[in-house]
Design a protein around this nucleic acid. Sequence first.
DNA 1: CAGCATCCGATCTGATACTG
DNA 2: CAGTATCAGATCGGATGCTG
Lengths: 118, 118
Amino acid sequence: MKIRDNYTCPLELTHDIIRGKWKPIILWQLGKGAASLSTLQNDITEIGQKMLLQHLGELQHFGMVQKQLFEGYPLKVEYSLTDKGMRMLNVIVSMQEIGIELMLEDGKEEFLKSKGLI
Amino acid sequence: MKIRDNYTCPLELTHDIIRGKWKPIILWQLGKGAASLSTLQNDITEIGQKMLLQHLGELQHFGMVQKQLFEGYPLKVEYSLTDKGMRMLNVIVSMQEIGIELMLEDGKEEFLKSKGLI
DNA sequence: CAGCATCCGATCTGATACTG
DNA sequence: CAGTATCAGATCGGATGCTG
């Protein structure tokens, strides 16, 4: 993603941070706790490794996610939310909640039930 | 914007609704009250007419915005938030708030003051 | 004033192949 | 397991000109 170096409005900044097809779901997953690259890739069905790494990198750039490296083989890495990331998670949670509301109003109860969301 | 006809997750739906460079600011502006096309274009500096119309159309598609036509010349149109749009505004407000927090932590007080945001 | 059509460069996404 | 490089197609953003 093209990263700007300044913003004309706070809204624009937040919008950029969660921009991209996979950013919200990555934050959502990390909200459950730290995870390795492969764990994330298993949990987020259909995401490719390249997009996962790219979006993780952008989230690190914005200070939402931190990476911890463990020495030795096999390689081990743990991604987790920073304090900022946890606060950003509030926005993600709001998005999830209103999304559920909208889907309910659109007659998607069955779908939501099948996902265990209601 | 390419519009999907189904979503695998509520978060994905909300993310799509506010996707695009100008959607959050358009919702923000309409949160202040109904507005005409030209009013919006004046208030949102730098947006072009095409993007404004396109994003307004998408917000209407998702039921966030409604359009009221007035008969006679000169033509008059009023865009405003629907009930859903007003609820979505809560997400936008959260985004603005966390954006302000992040900018403060990044030493942007002067900028925010100049905008009257703090 | 409100809105549409077209064209083009910039960006985004994803598949594939390769490295430590 | 974690991460990089490259390439192609889809999408996005914006400038411009035209219509009712």
